[in-house]
């Protein structure tokens, strides 16, 4: 039952919309349901990146902790979003920390497991890269806009 519902969750998540069921089935073997209490860190900057998350409910803050300053939230992700792509690219290390702002439910996909599957099945790998490059593109645009500091008085 658990596996089936997980497959359904993956298939219905925005990030995997229109993914053929054959691939969804492949993903399920790397997936697990996770919960994070408010305030809990999913990971911290510098740690090994070995998963990504399909957020089902709640909110995660992506943070950076600059020296001599308070930590800054640079992005938040929530329901329908996907969190984390450092698992996909060497050296597989998180560049930001991720903290649950609210109690959060998500599906975790194991990075090593997925990397292996992508190596074996390049079609799956292509699907993953297509989807993640869209996310990366969107985040890069957003970052550029944030860098403009639009609302500052200059």
């Amino acid at each position: 039952m658990e596996i089936q519902s997980l497959e359904k969750v993956i298939a219905e998540h925005e990030f995997f919309s229109d993914l053929e069921s054959y691939y969804t089935a492949l993903l399920v073997s790397c997936a697990s349901n996770v919960r994070f209490e408010a305030g809990k860190y999913l990971w911290r900057e510098g740690e090994e990146a070995n998963a990504f998350y399909l957020i089902r409910e709640g909110r995660i803050a992506v943070e950076i902790n600059p020296p001599q300053r308070k930590p800054i939230i640079v992005d938040t992700v929530g329901e329908g979003d996907v969190l984390g792509w450092s698992w996909l690219l060497p050296p597989y290390v998180w560049k930001f920390s991720a903290r649950a702002v609210d109690g959060t439910r998500a599906v975790a996909l194991d990075g090593k497991c997925l990397r292996n599957k992508c190596e074996q099945n390049h079609d799956l790998g292509y699907e993953m890269l297509k989807r993640f490059s869209q996310i990366m593109n969107r985040r890069l645009d957003a970052t550029r806009i944030q860098l403009l500091d639009l609302y500052a008085t200059r």
Partner: peptide, 22 residues
């Protein structure tokens, strides 16, 4: 609502305003 940058006590969204349209 969303802000470009938030301190750790901020519990709302962080991101550009266009990210809200979703």
């Amino acid at each position: 609502t969303t802000v470009d940058y938030g301190g750790v006590s901020w519990r709302g969204r962080v991101g550009v305003v266009t990210s809200l349209f979703r």
